[in-house]
Write a protein that binds this DNA or RNA. Structure first.
Length: 256
DNA sequence: ATGGCCGCTATGAGCGGA
């Protein structure tokens, strides 16, 4: 069972790129973020032609998440269902291939002085509360997506340049650690503890060419899935060339 | 120190992204 998370940065601008990658890699479950499109305009036909079913939660211009699967997608939830309700489409969950899949696009936060920063930190707390009331760490659960936080300096090309910047501040890292403490493993880190591998590179300048990136896209798994994980890699090749997303897909393979 | 690129919008400049 192969699962991928990928911040696609507009699914309409990236449809051909996505289709080509799916055709070549044939994952069973695909978690997309930043689709940037209302549900009526989502390119369903293009993914259905490849054999995927899809559940989507989008909005105009910003955010938007979707889960594609080669199998049935059951018990679909959109948003946290908490109070007050969020007007940003950032989380969708479904059960497929025997796994509860929670796909998230965590708020960016802008910078440490922005009012988006406390919103981001609070969002992590709401995500953990959502997990607590909807599932269990004893079950096979994947929480994945663009988490907009580096776990530690091993996920940062230049810890000096990024020190206390957004994605690298201690409160953000504590928020991510607090989520993991519910009962989730950072499965890429388990496989590649030495770090130095990125999932995002800035469009500006020569950051990709010089491999100056961050690892902010994560696949977190409960114990039973961590034990079943055969491999977890970041497909850097998908960041190359014209019309690439600024994020690369993260792929986990499970012996299920 | 700043911005550099990209996608979006009842566009043509400004915002958000990270």
């Amino acid at each position: 069972m192969k699962l991928v998370t990928w911040n696609i940065n507009s699914i309409r601008a990236r449809t051909q790129r996505l289709v080509g990658w799916l055709d070549a890699n044939r994952p069973d479950v695909v978690c997309l973020q930043e689709t940037k499109v209302e549900d009526a305009q989502f390119p369903l036909e293009a993914v259905e032609k490849l054999g995927y079913r899809a559940v989507i939660f989008g909005q105009k211009s910003y955010n938007g998440v979707a889960i594609l699967s080669t199998a049935e997608l059951a018990d679909v939830t959109r948003g946290f269902g908490d109070d007050p309700a969020d007007d940003e489409a950032r989380v969708i969950a479904a059960t497929t291939h025997g796994i509860r899949v929670v796909n998230v696009y965590v708020p960016n936060g802008q910078d440490l002085t922005s009012d988006r920063y406390p919103y981001k930190l609070a969002w992590y707390g709401r995500l953990r509360a959502f997990l607590e009331r909807t599932t269990s760490p004893e079950k096979p659960v994947v929480v994945c997506g663009d988490m907009n936080v580096t776990a530690d300096d091993h996920d940062v090309w230049s810890p000096e340049a990024w020190r206390d910047q957004i994605h690298c501040s201690a409160p953000e890292r504590e928020a991510l650690a607090g989520l993991r403490a519910w009962g989730l493993d950072d499965v890429f880190r388990v496989k590649r503890p030495e770090g130095g591998v990125w999932s995002w590179w800035d469009y500006r300048g020569v950051s990709f060419f010089k491999d100056q990136g961050l690892r902010i896209d994560h696949i977190l798994t409960t114990r039973v899935l961590t034990a079943a994980c055969a491999a977890c890699v970041i497909d850097r090749s998908a960041r190359k060339g014209q019309d690439a997303s600024d994020h690369a897909p993260v792929v986990a393979t499970f012996g299920l």
